[in-house]
Simulated scan of single mutants.
Amino acid sequence: MREFDEPSRTSGPGVVADGPAGAPTVLVIDPAGEAPHNEIPATWRNLTDRLRIVWLRVPAAPTWQSTVDKVLTMHRDDVKPVLDVVTSGPIAADVLDLVRRHEDLVRSVLLVDPEVEVHDEFARVVVRSSDSPDDRIPPPLPLGHPDVVFGVVEELDRLG
């Protein structure tokens, strides 16, 4: 498992967002801390014409759990919120626990290489990489990786 404690990942904004307000929202809770330059990763940008992408960079947001609660609570008064959460690896269990407190707001939790077994009805594993010597990127796959974006989009389309 990769380590995400590089100093460069802890600098920059804790949260970045792009896409139209009021659109279906994808909250990406990133343990690796991509998007350090106040923009979501390039692989996600073409989705912002139809989705609101909110990217929470865990290394730059030490109180990330309260930030997740705040972001989810902001949707409490939406008429019909469409909110999906994406996360990976080492924080999957914590994110699932947080979402359980907001199950009425969150349509799905989409997981990449979770380190836990997934039993919640609202949670789905969208990408699982192997930890084989042939793999160029060890798990968890970065959330900005094209395979992750493809898996997320495929699942969002299936959810309708």
Rank of each mutant, 00 (worst) to 15 (best):
R52K: 15
V95G: 08
V16G: 00
W55H: 10
S66H: 14
R158Q: 11
D69Q: 12
P140K: 05
L83M: 11
N46E: 15
P20M: 06
S130K: 15
G160F: 04
L96I: 13
D97W: 03
P36C: 04
V71Q: 09
V116R: 05
L141K: 08
R101K: 14
L96S: 08
D131F: 11
S132A: 13
V79A: 14
V79F: 03
R100W: 06
D94N: 10
S129H: 03
A17R: 11
M1L: 13
V106Q: 04
V126S: 01
R50A: 14
D84G: 01
S108H: 11
R124Y: 13
L98T: 10
D104A: 15
W44Y: 07
P140S: 05
G12R: 05
F150M: 07
L105Q: 10
L47P: 04
F150I: 01
I91M: 04
P138F: 05
P24H: 06
P133R: 12
L56S: 00
L51R: 10
P90W: 00
D135E: 15
G151W: 03
P31A: 14
G144P: 01
E115S: 12
P81E: 02
V148L: 01
S88P: 01
L98S: 13
T67W: 06
R76Q: 15
V99F: 12
P138K: 15
H145T: 04
V68Y: 03
R158P: 00
G144N: 14
E103P: 00
R100P: 04
L156W: 03
V152E: 01
V99S: 06
P20D: 04
S132I: 00
K70D: 09
S108F: 05
G89P: 01
G151A: 07
V126G: 06
E117P: 02
H75C: 06
D49M: 05
T25D: 05
T87G: 06
P59T: 11
R52S: 06
R50W: 07
D134Q: 12
V152P: 00
V118C: 00
T48E: 09
E155V: 05
V153Q: 13
V71S: 00
F122L: 11
P24G: 05
R100T: 10
K70L: 08
V152K: 04
L143W: 05
V16T: 15
V85F: 08
L51I: 05
T43D: 08
N46S: 15
A92H: 07
E3C: 02
A123T: 11
A42S: 13
V125A: 07
V68N: 07
E155S: 10
D147V: 03
K80Y: 06
G151S: 04
D134A: 15
A42E: 14
D147R: 11
P24L: 02
D77A: 12
P31Y: 06
